[in-house]
Design a protein around this nucleic acid. Sequence first.
DNA 1: CGAAAGGCTCTTTTT
DNA 2: GAGCCTTTCG
Length: 734
Amino acid sequence: MDILAGLNPRQREAAEAIGGPVLILAGPGSGKTRVITHRVAYLIQVCGVSPRHIMAVTFTNKAAREMEHRLQHLVSGAVPELTLGTFHAICVRILRRDGGVIGVEPRFVIYDEEDQMSLLKRSITEVGFDPKQYAPQAISSAISAAKSQLIVPADYLAKARSYYEEVVGRVYEQYQRLLGESNALDFDDLLLRTVHLFSANPEVLSRYQRRYQHLQVDEFQDTNLVQYELVKQIGGGYHNICVVGDPDQSIYSWRNADLRNILSFEKDYPEAKVVLLEQNYRSTKSILETASHLISANRERKQKGLWTDNEAGELATVVETYTEQDEAQFVVGEIERLVEQGKARLGDCAVMYRTNAQSRVLEEAFIRFGTPYKLVAGTRFYERREVKDIVAYLRLIQNPSDRVSLLRVINVPGRGIGQQTLAKLSGWAQSMGISQYQALSRIGEVAEGEAPFTPHIGRKLTDFLSLMEEVITASNERGLLELFDLVTTRTGYREYLLTQPDGEERWDNILELRTVAQQYRDLPPAEGLAVFLEGVALVSDVDGLDETVDAVTLITLHQAKGLEFPVVFIVGMEEGVLPHFKSFDDPAQMEEERRLCYVGVTRAGRLVYLVRAFRRSFRGSSMVNSPSRFLNDIPKHLISGSSLWMGEEGRVKEAVYSWPKTATADLGTSEPAPPAPAIGDLKTGDHVFHGVFGNGVVVSAVAVNGDFEVVVAFRGAGVKKLLQSYARLEKLKS
DNA sequence: CGAAAGGCTCTTTTT
DNA sequence: GAGCCTTTCG
């Protein structure tokens, strides 16, 4: 059987090009996944390359799993020794095995963002600065940016050109020291330390080079410099490097992804073969054309000639609603209509948004309508307090040096060990040059009075120590599941949790975590724990997306990359939302916002809806946003529903669905108050009185949806936007 | 030491 | 609006 049968000539060319560097530029829907999967299958089956010699890097774990399934199907069998996963997952494996030579102990733990932040704040304080003065968030991204460019603290300090950079450099230095003391690595370190391992140990590198004779990297437009360096290092022996990507879908520059990687690949590898995949199999002509117009508005890009043989299809529907609640109602109502008319199944539909905060209103509407939906990890399961608590206990068992985890659980449930005590413990440990955990065991050993604790407090600390010793001993003998149960009970956590607000519900989350642990039950004790913790640290939200469930998908535009749905709704098509206001003053960021919108539109197969709300609440207060500039990038002849979208009175109403009659009582979050009787039309210049803001002058009054949006400049209270029916403005005689 | 209350900032996107 | 931090009191 010809393994490449069914590929078009371009795709075939890409799959067959196995000697030397290859750059595949793949437009959306061009069968990229198909190509890279067939390419690996071709290597194994036709070229007789052992899976052992192949490394394939994907963007998410989910993509890796899918590729594995498809591969097994193609080569009809398992591919055991194939290295397949994200950069991060692959680096973890390398470091567990060979990190020792650069001082990375195999039992290291991986710090997520929250752990990182906690350690970073500590670092800022410890080098003598105030976390309130130097935003930890900003320092964190500065450090992350440095790490993504292979800059270590010493280099950073040497190159610091301002006081602020000096501060960042010193924090960076301290932060790395603390990470080291905790035997912990953050996400950036996983990559960076691997590069260091290779550059400092050529013999280790050459072992990996000899093993990985074929290298393939997907989503190359979203790799950073460190990742590119890794590719260069590992692929340095054979130069059989295949990278796949699409510059128009680069949306992770904020995570230090560097578009230059894909642009300079040809320069770094002049002999590279370049293959363009331009035929789209996913979308209708209309959608593809809409997307092409949209992305053409970006100046920094290479023109591509996307085309499709698919039918013309329907025009994009642009809809304006009044509030974000109406927006959500419209979406759910429209989906229900499509399903009723047999035009789509629930599972065909996805609702995409710029920010996670937008998912809430949508979710409420779906609940209200009783329409099944799946939210792509909006809740971030692994970030929940109770889940992180248990994970912290388990991490501490694997690696007692883990300072962040120790501090997290030492007093949860409450054991009467407070801030004062912990500060003393920390100082004492530091003065002896040992970890805090080691300091705990010292308490019982030293003579009375040598430890800075009263016998009463000392007792509490040593009690905690014995508890940990007990579970650590157990961890060497028992499987993960037994250990898990021991931790939740023996530490008193279960009892504690059940007394907390929402205790039952949160305990259910622990049980869900236990279900995850179940998968590792048969591994030998220490290994089961390590693999479980690694999985927990590196999951991504889309990993949990289950395609077999027939329900609407709610997902961020970023998460949607690489996915496809017959019907796509993009909501929040507004200035300030998409494009996000943070990108207003930076043209490069603005172009990235446009690419994000492009990614959204190109996910769609048959139908696209671009929806916006006239007013939307943001952090408690209400905002009025104008239509997204991206709507202007789409020519009018490609849009239907324009009668709805300029918001003329009466027309807007058509787009607004009413709540269903049933099941509205328990969710009355957005029930509007009964409108006050109109006091008469207001016009610019009128003097008015408001019960709270006092006297003011009308700046503007606009008719909206049968009501009036009034902007008033109040004496003292400033300028406010008010809705006349709610605000009870009293018109004064001037 | 810990619970409760109030004030303050803020995440846009995530391996 | 929520979550975080600080303050206050028992």
